[in-house]
Design a protein around this nucleic acid. Structure first.
Length: 262
DNA sequence: TTTACTGTTAGGAC
DNA sequence: TGTCCTAACAGTAA
């Protein structure tokens, strides 16, 4: 369920369990038809090397070897990453496995096959090549105001555009707008500088809070939208009831009472 | 059986 | 030239 916080949790799992171990082999899982995975030769470049670092930009993870290639992992709609001990049994839908000496292994699971793995030579070049905007956790106030406030379309669509701001997806876009009191279909350019600044703060706080729980939603505050994404549910902030609509083709939950436009 | 889905992108409309 | 919107991708689960 990967947006920035879920991807960050995955990155941390790699950092905790998969660095500085010698890679014995990288193997494909069953049924990798239609998937975007590196070819055999590209994967073989990792054999005998070790991952020494794991970084993230938006929803993209990069596991890097010392002076060598990086393995870029994108989890798509339903991908996940786990570091398994030698005695643990694989789940279903494993598409790629990085096996380390001693039996520990990094598994990439992706039932829906929307994920992607690419062998890249450098992170910054790849981020530029994909056309990603600044990471949502580190973007500055001015850049946020330019890139979101300058959009003529719906503010939620702007938050979701990875070319403007990398990392925010459907769930946390809704959550941020709910907490900032802004309707998802408000035109971004109709919001004054104060509200755009406030939205920036709320987006950052929201993502950080989810990262801090390692993306375990049950640990998030009870008044958050994540616990009431149901049409007609009680709003956690005011006396309103949660509504449901489509913005930019994406299902959007919001409170028509305390969230406002322009 | 039908429907929706937490992401990305190509192609067409404005 | 941008910018924005929609449909499509593939598979599962409710």
């Amino acid at each position: 369920m990967p947006e920035l916080p879920e991807v960050e949790a995955a990155r941390r799992r790699i950092e905790r369990g998969a660095l500085n171990r010698t890679i014995e082999a990288v193997t494909y899982g069953d049924d990798i038809t239609h998937m975007d995975l590196p070819d055999r030769a590209a994967l073989d470049r990792f054999t005998g090397t070790q991952f020494s670092t794991a970084t993230r930009h938006g929803k993209f993870i990069f596991a890097g070897t010392q002076g060598g290639p990086w393995m870029m992992i994108h989890l798509g709609m339903a991908g996940s990453i786990r570091v398994m001990d030698a005695d643990e049994v694989d789940a279903d839908y494993i598409r790629l496995t990085v096996a380390f000496e001693g039996g520990t292994r990094l598994t990439f699971r992706d039932p829906r096959k929307f994920g992607e793995i690419v062998v890249v030579e450098g992170v910054e070049d790849y981020v530029a090549e994909r056309g990603l905007g600044p990471d949502a956790l580190t973007i500055g106030d001015n850049a946020f105001a330019d890139v979101i406030g300058g959009t003529r379309g719906a503010v939620k669509s702007a938050l979701l555009a990875q070319s403007k701001l990398a990392g925010v997806g459907n769930l946390w876009a809704d959550e941020s707008l709910y907490r900032a009191g802004i309707l998802p279909d408000a035109r971004a350019c109709d919001l004054d500088a104060g509200r755009i600044g406030q939205l920036h703060g709320v987006v950052g706080d929201t993502l950080k809070a989810v990262v801090d729980t390692d993306a375990v939603y049950s640990k998030l505050p009870a008044d958050w939208l994540i616990h009431r994404r149901d049409e007609g549910a009680d709003c956690g902030i005011c006396d309103g009831a949660i509504g449901k609509t489509k913005v930019g083709g994406r299902t959007s939950y919001f409170c028509p009472d305390h969230q406002t436009g322009g």
